[in-house]
């Protein structure tokens, strides 16, 4: 912006340019101050609501604190309690959350991509289908949890009725320790919409010429997908994976409302464990430790994902 403005002026006359330059210096400083002031709300918010709390949480993770009395420094005791298995629910809830993420995230990506591809075929009614798939994602999780508790009802629920029409006797879902977690995976498939829309927009941006050229060379559908669509889509896929890992790891409301972690801790998600420690048992220090552990795990996943992505994410510059 600056360069073009100066060039334009420079073409007019040298003297005017000097004047403008001087003015620019003054205006530039003023602009810088204005700019910093306008970005200030975010910077203050970052310190007060993000960076500050993160550091405070790191500190309270080494304390015993019921929020009313003063925090007491106990060194690594909280982390020892976690990793030694003294808190039996720590590994349990971590396991539940990992299993959930491994079931849910790939399903969301594959189904999202499949639906996006179907929607991209320019079939009549595409807009209608797109809305139908998106709609459940905008409904409140609380409302959906209530509704799906009813859908999962073993005797009178919609799901087992549907299965019975196919000749299958459905399980007890939320009341069956084996099926409660898959039930939540199933329910959360209704949140496929936003990822699907992003993938669809990605698909629509793949240059059509690439397909045409490849088809002239005799490429079949599979080859088009493998060698054109996926490489062109890799950065979008990368983003969708990041967001779905992030949200899977922090799943809370559905388990809190539908099963309260049960039956037999089958849906005792990590966030639920953290919530119980912090807001039911008032062990703020221990819960802060839990939060930091999950934070490190999620960031670890993201770093691995970033590293791996160098092998498969395609960028124009390469």
């Amino acid at each position: 912006m600056a360069i073009t403005a100066e060039r334009r002026v420079g073409a007019d006359s040298g003297k005017a340019m000097v004047r403008v330059e001087r003015r620019r210096g003054r205006l530039g400083r003023r602009e810088a101050i204005d700019g910093i002031l306008m970005a200030m709300p975010w910077m203050v918010g970052f310190v007060l609501f993000t960076a500050g709390p993160m550091l405070v949480g790191l500190y309270t993770g080494f304390t015993k604190w019921d929020i009313i009395s003063r925090p007491v420094w106990i060194g690594l005791d909280n982390y020892v309690r976690m990793f030694s298995g003294a808190d039996k629910l720590f590994y349990r809830s971590l396991g539940v959350t990992l299993r959930y993420t491994l079931m849910s995230a790939p399903l969301h990506l594959v189904l999202g991509l499949a639906l996006a591809s179907l929607l991209n075929m320019k079939i009549p009614g595409t807009n209608f289908f797109r809305s139908v798939y998106y709609l459940p994602a905008i409904l409140p999780v609380v409302a959906s949890s209530v509704l799906w508790s009813w859908v999962f009802n073993p005797e009178f629920g919609l799901l087992n009725y549907g299965l019975s029409l196919l000749g299958i006797k459905g399980p007890g879902w939320l009341s069956d320790p084996k099926w409660a977690l898959p039930a939540i995976v199933l329910m959360n498939l209704q949140y496929i919409g936003p990822g699907m829309i992003i993938l669809l927009a990605g698909l629509q941006r793949v240059p059509q010429e690439l397909y045409e050229a490849a088809q002239l060379d005799g490429a079949n559908r599979w080859m088009l997908l493998r060698h054109i669509t996926l490489p062109q889509m890799s950065s979008v896929i990368f983003f969708v994976i990041i967001t779905s890992i992030n949200s899977s790891f922090q799943t809370f409301t559905q388990a809190f409302l539908m099963t309260n972690g049960g039956p037999n801790y089958a849906t005792h998600f990590y966030m639920l464990h953290l919530y119980n420690e912090a807001w039911r048992s008032y062990r703020m220090g221990y819960a802060s430790g839990l939060a930091w552990v999950l934070f490190v795990i999620i960031v670890g996943f993201m770093i691995v994902h970033f590293r791996l992505s160098r092998l498969w994410v395609y960028t124009d510059s390469e």
Partner: peptide, 9 residues
Amino acid sequence: PGIVTFIPT
């Protein structure tokens, strides 16, 4: 991940 700020906030 927002989880790390919930409790201190």
